[in-house]
Amino acid sequence: MQATAPAAPLRGFRYYDMLVAGMVAVLLCSNLIGPAKVCTVSLPMLGALSFGAGNLFFPVSYIFGDVLTEVYGYARARRAIWAGFGAMVFATLMSQAIIRMPASAGEPFNAQLQPALELVFGNTWRIALASLIAYWLGDFANSFVMARMKLWTRGRMLWTRTIGSTLVGQGVDSLTFYPIAFSGIWEGQTIVKVIAFNWTMKVLVEVVLTPLTYAVVGFLKSREGVDTFDEGTRFTPFSLKDEGVLHTPGQ
């Protein structure tokens, strides 16, 4: 029988802040750097496949979300999601402000730098809005499914939760982002194909990295001495209150 205690304050955790920082860093890099480059790879039987470079690393932010939810619970993952959302809003506003500031005519390098900044960071308002909405909906869907499945499975079969939550979260993300960003620009058939391909690739990244997720979760539960079950948690996104029941492993 496991001992239970009320949710502990965030300052009691040694690794929580570092995980949040890592999640935000991956999120910002995949959204600000990755989308600027389209990659093409040739695979046996499938031929040439094109995808945004950010799609290779964006799923890592979902792995951070899985780890945070599994170890610390939905409420603390919720804090991390809001931190990521705030960082994305700030980065979007900052990049737009810098692009629109008048470049000094006395600096010759600006003639090369300004077009480059506009090309890399000058996303249209539709793409910026789509990224924010898709991230918010997708990450909360991922964390919700992860937490609920942990209760259903009574903490067993972690792989079902990590993959199952990613199937839902990445599906919500892709189904939200591409229609908002490209409806009326791309043909409907193209949007469907891109959604299907990117969703599949993101889920495969999660599957491949499942052993790493197991290792990190095991390490954190052991070092933090905690394993959170969201019993009685209010699964609203609009709260920063600590909730969930902390179980002490091995007792």
Rank of each mutant, 00 (worst) to 15 (best):
M1S: 11
M1T: 12
A25L: 15
I33K: 02
G34W: 06
P35W: 04
K37W: 10
K37I: 14
T40S: 15
A53K: 01
F58W: 05
P59S: 11
V60W: 08
L68F: 04
E70L: 08
V71L: 05
Y72Q: 02
R76Y: 11
R76V: 08
R79T: 12
I81A: 06
G84W: 07
A87Y: 06
F90W: 11
A91G: 02
P102C: 03
F109D: 12
N110Y: 09
A111G: 06
V120Q: 07
V120L: 13
N123A: 10
R126I: 03
A128E: 14
A130Y: 06
S131Q: 09
I133L: 15
L137Q: 08
L137Y: 03
G138H: 02
G138F: 03
F140V: 01
F144G: 00
V145T: 05
A147P: 00
M149E: 03
W152Y: 07
G155R: 06
L158E: 04
T160Q: 10
R161E: 05
G164R: 09
T166N: 10
Q170G: 11
Q170S: 12
S174V: 05
Y178G: 00
I180M: 07
I180F: 08
S183F: 13
E187Q: 15
Q189R: 14
T190L: 12
V194H: 11
N198L: 01
W199Y: 15
L204D: 02
V205I: 15
V205Q: 12
L209E: 07
L212D: 03
T213W: 01
T213H: 06
Y214D: 08
A215M: 12
F219T: 07
F219H: 09
G225I: 10
V226G: 00
V226D: 01
F229P: 00
D230L: 01
G232N: 03
G232H: 03
T233P: 02
R234Q: 07
T236F: 05
G244Y: 02
V245A: 06
G250T: 07
